[in-house]
Write a protein that binds this DNA or RNA. Sequence first.
DNA 1: GATATTTTGATTTACGTACATCAAAACTTC
DNA 2: GAAGTTTTGATGTACGTAAATCAAAATATC
Lengths: 345, 345
Amino acid sequence: MRPTVHDIAAEAGVSLATVDRVLNNRPGVRAVTRGKVEQAIATLGYVRDVAAANLAKGRGYSLNFILPAGENSFMRGLEAEVRAAKAHLASERTEITIRCVPAFDASALADALAEARRQRPAGVAVVAVDAPEVVRAVEELRQEGIAVVTLVSDLPGSTRDHFAGVDNIAAGRTAGNLMGRFLGDRAGPVAVVAGSMLVRDHRERLEGFQAVMHECFETRLLLPVVEGQDDAALVEKLVGGLIERHPDLAGIYSLGAGNRGLVAALEKAGKAEAVCAIAHELTPHSRAALLSGTIDVLLNQDAGHEIRSAIRVLKAKADGLPVIEAQERIRIDIFLKDNLPNGQA
Amino acid sequence: MRPTVHDIAAEAGVSLATVDRVLNNRPGVRAVTRGKVEQAIATLGYVRDVAAANLAKGRGYSLNFILPAGENSFMRGLEAEVRAAKAHLASERTEITIRCVPAFDASALADALAEARRQRPAGVAVVAVDAPEVVRAVEELRQEGIAVVTLVSDLPGSTRDHFAGVDNIAAGRTAGNLMGRFLGDRAGPVAVVAGSMLVRDHRERLEGFQAVMHECFETRLLLPVVEGQDDAALVEKLVGGLIERHPDLAGIYSLGAGNRGLVAALEKAGKAEAVCAIAHELTPHSRAALLSGTIDVLLNQDAGHEIRSAIRVLKAKADGLPVIEAQERIRIDIFLKDNLPNGQA
DNA sequence: GATATTTTGATTTACGTACATCAAAACTTC
DNA sequence: GAAGTTTTGATGTACGTAAATCAAAATATC
């Protein structure tokens, strides 16, 4: 049987009340007595039963998730994962609230954060927009002792407790490495389609991609970046133009959303096979394109992992517990058609 | 506030005892009354507080892990992850016991399973050896209501509750796809080094690799498989021989262990750059070789994820709860030097 | 050595659920 | 409608910890 507080009291030769004072570091215990209790804890190997403790404290965790609204299928997938976690955690004294705000709108996000603060949750997870007013709103949350985790897109310059997302520079480098190797000696330039250079993760992916191309495949011509605003129709038009202007186009790296447009343009031009296409995020559409061969590689961040990691971290921070960084690292999934998971998404 | 059993009783206009009878489906409740209670549960949105319930039940989970002994660094990594989980779960009424048995020894494994049965744990996780006596031992555990999860290597033909490991056919296919694409038009044959064809996961990786090479890169010559017994010295000798006999060797797929030998042979022959090497499992050595460029791709299964998944599943099964298969799928990590995690391992 | 102060003990209640007991009420059945 | 059976209520204890109260003991202060 695991030792309880009673066992500690007996072992240390003190009362239950004193053990409680030591365990919850309340005042009124002499150093000698505290030592005896700590000794007993050590020899018996006592560990506090967190479930019982939370029950006694009447503690619950209330968490707020703030996500961008809109059609972005990755974000909608994220939201679905939050809802799934919410259902699952209902039995574990954890209550989750979801709030959607217009995408890329810093002031709307700052307002949402201010409102979250009024609800005094234990923690807030937010897909950050990189702007000063957002940083300020986060700081105010932190000052009230509310834990903050940034999700997918980080907020440097703030004191957020943690970032639950992938290393986008590494993602871009990975795309560059694969592009360079897949093309081998084949001639022709490589194009890059971004969503918007205003978004931090896109900037970082581009940075990584260009770095590797310059370091390792310096003879390959990189065309100037075009911005598709994560909009399928615009992406299709832009990629169509690229193919027309560069009939020998060898590869395309699409580091934002709007993959439907990318796929449509490649297939209409009959370039599905000839052009090596690397894109981001596994969705039903991108999955189909990977299987058909139009897309050659998909880089992905697992939304479910990000959400569950964010929740674990928020709870730990709310309890003042340490976080195991290695366990919370979100990996970059590389999907070829041969290692696609069978399930949904 | 979340509703409690008391709220249900009040809402349904029955006593606490009746609510309890319904919740834990004990006998002695008329259908009408049961209906009233269920209605109240639905309207109030009651969810049982599992922490409080476990506390009341005095329930704890005792889990047994049975792993292969020996020098295999992947297995030692697994064991380290089990120990880490054990420490972490001490505060959550979960007790983990680890037992190591000689590798590839079916009867020793069957004995260990029989002994585990005597301890009557809630669940057992085991790295299976694919043999009839092991299947029998697993069946006996299952008949006593003990949950069983196979780890890393599955046990088809048994009624184990779950397999926590990667799809090794997909892993082999992935290796084949990458090998074919990385080589492109470069001439030369490809060699495969396995550990032993007696081991199921090695057989499956080989099967996947060969399938893709034949389907998609049919002009590429595949040399006959050599078996290195997961032994670094033997692997080094075998690979050295391959390089001598085939000066134009283009690629090597090492689907087992003994990567140290692979790396040594390639580097001694001055073929570190020329030969495309794909191997399995991220260890300090393979990591270094990936960074230096001797190994081009590492496929990996995350030991920590496998262990934590096994624990979640065992607990769920012990409670008779459903498992979210999508959440428990163990992915195949593909590591290039650009997306290596920073941490340990 | 009397008084003030700090430290400790003993005891109680609470958290939300499980489980047991015994009595009371509601039904069957003939 | 009496006897038997099933259903329901009322109540208490337990799980391991938190938190509070008040009294008792130990120590410090002058």
